[in-house]
Write a protein that binds this DNA or RNA. Structure first.
Lengths: 222, 222
DNA sequence: ATATACATGTCGAGG
DNA sequence: CCTCGACGTGTATAT
């Protein structure tokens, strides 16, 4: 990895075009061809390009090309403060826990937190328009589709479950079909659309869910 | 800005939890409190935290806390390869061209690229279910809703414009109402849904659009 | 401050 | 390879 600290000016042409007027930045050139340009603020690079790339240095100009997409990052070096290379070894991958998949597992263990008497029949049930998170039967035996959002549900989530319902309703044997969106929070537009479409919104407190399941199933403590 | 090159082990706790086993990384500590951790691959940081933060160094352990959200990034330094600080000055902001907003501006200048005789009546017209990109009249005077996507249109875009149409159709004076999605590309599901809903798909070549407008409106040449 | 939609989104799974 | 939905999404904009 090359770590270049320099005053520079940058242009990007690709999916859009950007320009960055002269300023001091830290530029990382990775062995896989990726490039990241960090300015003095923010956690994310201000300019970047994913590998593989061809890096071409021509005096004070560095051109980074990604031939597959025709993107070009042009860096004009005005003043180099530091320029070092490091042989880095890192075989580790980032491990994530607490994602939607795990939330699904928790719900499957305790569907009652959504609604009393709810029974999970199938998980990730495939339809022509994509998979349904949960295909259930409610206490009265009515087919009930459940779409789960880990964060705030927006209108798109409601539309998603409506599409699923339309698909499922094509089978007369399954009708009527209820549709639920389960999320910790709902955007007002999501609520409005849900009301118009006959979709039910269920606010799910994840903390309550965690406490509701058996301790040995808890992946994290609260 | 502090640039630390080190073998380290990292844990993040916040909206979820992540762990990163030991490996060599480049860590950037910015003056605004932001932290970015780059591993050997990819353009984006593998771990990060936006400012403001409190950074606390305790021997070989660095803790980065964001009190507002209760997030914590813990870095265990195993071997420091380099540790430098740089006084950087950068007053520049990234200038972007080619965002959806600018695409709208271009369309407003030359609505004919969508359809001959189309007239833009209103832009960003608000409805209960969100704003319509363009409210138009076609050559025959029929109310025409236009939803623009800068990249490939998916089913959600079609559903969006269908919602708008439902809203607009509540006013009998405006009926009938056409609905268009304009994008450089359409996902098959988007086309299928559009056909089912009576929504028209218009493929828009951005290059043709640029050439269609007056040269002085072009910010970059092609 | 809240809500909404855009993003060079990026990323990974599944057909 | 393409299509799709999640993401520690982040970020800007309008209300």
């Amino acid at each position: 990895m090359r770590v270049l600290v320099a005053r520079c000016e940058i242009a990007y042409e690709g999916r859009l075009q950007t320009r960055l007027a002269p300023g001091d930045r830290v530029l990382l050139f990775k062995d896989d061809g990726s490039v990241a340009v960090h300015n003095t603020r923010g956690a994310k690079p201000v300019n970047y390009m994913g590998g593989p790339t061809v890096v071409e240095e021509d005096g004070e100009i560095i051109r980074v090309r990604r031939s597959s997409s025709g993107e070009l990052l042009t860096i004009l070096l005005l003043d180099v403060h530091a320029d070092t290379r490091h042989a880095l070894e890192d075989g580790a991958a980032l491990e994530r826990e607490g994602r939607e998949l795990q939330l699904h597992a928790l719900i499957e263990q305790a569907p009652d937190v959504i609604e009393e008497g709810l029974l999970v029949v199938e998980r990730e049930r495939p339809t022509d328009v994509g998979p349904i998170d949960f295909f259930c039967r409610d206490a009265a035996g009515v087919a009930t589709l459940v779409e789960v959002k880990r964060v705030k549900a927006v209108a798109a989530a409601v539309e998603q479950v409506v599409r699923y319902r339309e698909q499922v309703e094509r089978d007369p044997a399954l009708r009527p079909v209820r549709a639920l969106v389960v999320a910790p929070e709902f955007a007002p537009q999501a609520r409005a659309l849900a009301a118009a479409r006959g979709v039910e919104c269920v606010v799910l407190d994840v903390g309550a869910l965690r406490r509701g399941v058996a301790p040995e199933l808890r992946l994290f403590d609260g």
